[in-house]
Each structure stands twice: as structure tokens, then as C-alpha cells.
Computed example of a mutant assay.
Amino acid sequence: MKLTETVQTADWKAEKHVPVLHVEKADGLLKIKAQVGEEIEHPNTLEHHIAWIKVFFKPEGSKFPIEVGSYNFSAHGEEEIFSKPMVEVEIKTEKSGEVYALSYCNIHGLWENSVEA
């Protein structure tokens, strides 16, 4: 089995593991927000958490995506205080393309989403 065959996707409004993407273009910048659990909150506890989120941009006409952000959540909190798996990145580009986010849940594996930018 190939690793790519293990990546899951779904409608983020019904599945809490899918990274939700918000993209805004302004003044030569692409502002990207990726969050796991926007509509249905993901339990980010020590036992069940999002370990990382990676963000990619594939410019129109390009063969491969470019990694533009890699975020590890090595601390999740304790007692009643837990972090939320959300990241933001800005990239300089005038190009259109597609934004991808890949996230990893320590229990439920790899999840991805993409949007046109």
C-alpha cells in the first residue's frame, strides 16, 4: 500500500479531522488559515490530538506543490487548558493556484483538503 492511499478526506462540516482552509488574496500576498475542527471541534487532548498540519501551494501551471508551512503541535496543554490546531501563513505571490492542507491525528491518521486560490 502507498502512503497516499492512506490519506483521508471528507466534508469538513461533517468530519472533525479535515483541515478547513480559508484563503484571502491581497496586495501580492496569499493569506492562508488552516484549522482542524472548525465546525466540529477536535478534542485536542494528550490522548487524542492533531500532531501536525502542513500547508502547500501549487501555482497554476506548476507540476508540483510547494510546502509553505509546517507546524508541529508538540505541546497540547493540560488540565482544562488545551491548544486548538489552527495555523496561519502568508506567502508572497501574484499567481493563482491551489492551496492544500494535510493534518495528522494520532488516532485517526492523515487527512487533507484543498481549495482554489
Score class of each variant (00 low, 15 high):
Ala14Met: 12
Gly97Leu: 09
Ser83Ala: 14
Ile32Phe: 08
Ser74Tyr: 12
Tyr104Arg: 06
Ser114Cys: 11
Glu94Asn: 13
Asp11His: 06
Glu15Ala: 08
Ile40Val: 13
Met86Phe: 03
Lys2Met: 09
Asn106Arg: 01
His48Met: 05
Pro43Leu: 01
Glu5Arg: 11
Glu78Pro: 00
Pro19Gly: 04
Glu80Asp: 14
Val99Asp: 05
Phe82Arg: 09
Gly109Gln: 03
Thr4Leu: 10
Glu24Thr: 13
Val87Ile: 15
Lys13Leu: 09
Glu98Asn: 08
His42Val: 04
Phe64Ile: 04
Asp11Val: 15
Phe73Cys: 03
Glu80Thr: 13
His17Asn: 12
Tyr71Ser: 01
Ser83Pro: 00
Ser74Leu: 10
Asn113Ala: 13
Phe82Pro: 00
Ser62His: 12
Gly109Val: 14
Lys13Thr: 12
Glu116Cys: 02
Lys31Asp: 09
Asn72Lys: 11
Pro59Asp: 05
Gly97Lys: 08
Ala75Glu: 12
Glu116Thr: 10
Lys58Ala: 07
Trp52Thr: 01
Ser96Thr: 15
Gly69Thr: 10
His22Pro: 00
Trp12Tyr: 14
Thr45Arg: 12
Leu102Phe: 13
Gln8Met: 13
Tyr104Gly: 05
Asn106Lys: 06
His76Ser: 04
Val115Asp: 02
Val68Gln: 02
Asn113Leu: 03
Leu30Cys: 11
His108Phe: 13
Gly97His: 07
Glu24Gly: 00
Lys63Glu: 15
Leu30Trp: 02
Ala117His: 03
Gln8Cys: 04
Gly77Cys: 07
Leu110Arg: 07
Glu90Tyr: 03
Asn72Cys: 01
Ala51Thr: 13
Lys31His: 13
Trp52Glu: 07
Ala10Asn: 15
Asp27Pro: 00
Thr6Pro: 00
Phe56Lys: 08
Pro65His: 05
Ala51Gln: 09
